[in-house]
């Protein structure tokens, strides 16, 4: 028994691991809570695309020595509006617009990195995250930005719920529907920026979608879905870091694999909804 505690406690003796654990837990929570809306509104592809689109912003900030969040946020919001503009008035379908912007912006980011950066190492960090490299100032900005996202989600809980469940009701209640829709996109961009250091651009979508999807199968109320998703997200983050620490697996993928495993278990066994419960012998 004491051995297990020793194993669990050991990583905490290193400052970099403490920062990694705190950042990962926070990212797990904020991604999963906002992920509830990503899942319910069918924005998984959009979220993935937005994550890839911000690469040029991250690279630019990296090269100029600015905080990564600044460049990422600016480009993320730009990409969100560009997608909106291309698909408005029915000229192009939204997923087509997303595909165009996503691939173009991502290519620009990789091109910039190949021109300015130490290509392979940096690209790997941006793509798959590097939670063990979280500095104290990174940790501070992670907590501030995550806190901002969670606060806005809390303050506009009923409004976001209505625009997601029944936008026509939102209109007849004369809520500013477009404002809330864009606010949600901005929150999504902020959340992705916060997550990049932990899970990376390529895997952010897993943290947005997977815990929330598992929670969707387990709950029947939105706030519970958010709470359960947050717990799964944070738990996957911690478990993934332990696995990474002891088995020398890259941290970002380890976290995502734990979350995926949790989802598979839930998908099979969720009360009433899981595959096992629905199985009827012939």
């Amino acid at each position: 028994m004491a051995d297990i505690f020793a194993l669990l406690a050991e990583p905490w003796q290193h400052g970099f691991m403490v920062r990694a654990l705190l950042a990962t837990a926070m990212v797990g929570i904020v991604c999963s809570v906002l992920g509830a809306y990503v899942v319910l509104r069918g924005m998984a592809f959009f979220g993935d695309a937005l994550a890839h689109s911000i690469l040029p912003g991250v690279v630019l900030a990296f090269v100029l020595g600015w905080p990564l969040a600044v460049g990422a946020l600016a480009v993320g919001i730009l990409a969100a509006f560009a997608i909106g503009a291309l698909s408005s008035r029915g000229l192009l379908k939204e997923d087509t617009a997303i595909g165009v912007i996503f691939a173009g912006a991502f290519a620009l980011g990789v091109a910039m990195l190949s021109a300015f950066g130490t290509y392979t190492v940096d690209l790997a960090h941006f793509l798959f995250g590097n939670p063990l490299g979280v500095s104290e100032s990174d940790l501070l900005s992670t907590f501030l930005l995550s806190g901002f996202v969670l606060l806005v989600v809390f303050l506009f809980y009923k409004e976001f719920m209505i625009i997601s469940f029944d936008p026509l009701l939102a209109t007849t209640l004369r809520l500013p529907v477009s404002f809330f829709r864009y606010l949600l996109l901005i929150l999504l961009a902020v959340t992705i920026v916060v997550s990049i250091q932990v899970v990376g651009i390529a895997l952010v979508v897993a943290m947005l979608v997977t815990p929330a999807a598992a929670a969707f199968l387990l709950t029947q109320r939105l706030w519970r879905m958010m709470a359960v998703a947050g717990a799964i997200g944070a738990g996957s983050g911690l478990a993934g870091l332990y696995i990474s620490y002891y088995w020398s697996i890259a941290a970002g993928p380890a976290i995502v694999l734990v979350a995926t495993a949790v989802f598979v278990v839930v998908f099979l066994s969720a009360p009433g909804k899981g595959l096992i419960w629905r199985y009827k012998p012939a």
Partner: peptide, 9 residues
Amino acid sequence: QIDFSFPVT
């Protein structure tokens, strides 16, 4: 027009 799988009572 309504998504009845939405987690809402």
